Simulated scan of single mutants.
Amino acid sequence: MGSVYGNEDVIAHEHRVLMGEYGRAQARCSAQLAAQAARIAQLESELMRARAQVVIRDTRLALARDELAELAASVPGLPTRARLARKVEWLGERVQDLMRELLRLQWLPAPVLQADVREKAVLYVGSYLEQNAGRSAAGANVAQLAIEQAGGRFLHHAGGDAGADDVAALEAGLVAADLVICQTGCVSHDAYWRVHDHCKRTGKQCVLVDQPQAMHFVRKEALLT
């Protein structure tokens, strides 16, 4: 008992220290609870604003759909017109791509190859522009001379599209030919694509030249008797 009474001051001091620590811990817990409560309130406020924005968006979307439905009902054939407009736009882009490909092919150098045309029918498509009639005739003569000297049979089509007879003659020449030579700068657009399509479908060899003089790929071998 004497020892307890002798330590009263120490015990009282430790008690005060513990109470101080307890008070500070309680204050920290209270501050954390207050901060969490404030954060929860902020998040709830943000959630309410987000929900309000979603409601506004859905309302505007519904109104826009109603307006679109009314517009479609007031203009018969509007969906079809829209599809046609998109298709026309796509076709325009396709035409541009094809024209660029055509220009690229026109500027390609004559192919470096040796074509054996002996006893073969060679269709030369080109030289149809009237303003270049003199040069065109000379071009056809150059091609004919090169092919016949190599032992081939020369077929010719001017590359125009003046009526059904002209188209039929081109188709007949393509069918009869073993090899097709197309002078890209002097044929009509329709004739060029007919030649391109026929050779692609049949696998027939087709040589593109930008001028008749570029005939060095034909073997200049006369027929042996």
Rank of each mutant, 00 (worst) to 15 (best):
A50I: 08
V95Y: 11
A140S: 06
A158V: 05
P79V: 08
Y124V: 03
A143I: 02
A137L: 09
D66N: 15
E93G: 07
Q32C: 05
A64N: 12
D58V: 08
A214D: 07
A172R: 08
A121N: 13
L123T: 00
A172M: 04
F154T: 02
K120V: 03
L68D: 12
R94A: 14
E101T: 10
P76M: 06
D66T: 15
Q96A: 15
A62S: 15
Q26W: 01
A38W: 03
W107E: 12
G185N: 10
Q183G: 01
L84M: 11
L145F: 04
E44V: 07
E221L: 10
T225W: 07
Q211T: 14
Y5S: 11
D97T: 12
I56C: 06
L208I: 03
V117H: 01
K120C: 05
R104Q: 14
D197W: 00
Q213N: 08
A146F: 00
A168S: 08
V88T: 10
G163S: 03
H198A: 02
A64R: 14
M99T: 11
V167W: 03
K220W: 02
Q96F: 07
A72I: 15
A41L: 07
V17E: 15
E67Q: 15
E21S: 01
V17C: 12
H157W: 03
A164R: 13
A143Y: 02
A172Q: 07
Q32N: 07
A168G: 00
V117Y: 00
E130P: 04
I147K: 00
L78E: 06
T202Y: 06
L105E: 08
L47N: 15
D178T: 03
V175F: 04
D190M: 05
V187H: 00
E46L: 12
A50P: 02
K200I: 00
A133Y: 07
A25Q: 11
A69H: 11
V17T: 14
T59G: 15
D210G: 14
G163I: 03
V4Q: 06
N132I: 08
A214E: 06
D210I: 09
Q26E: 06
A121G: 00
L84H: 07
Q114G: 13
R51C: 09
V187M: 01
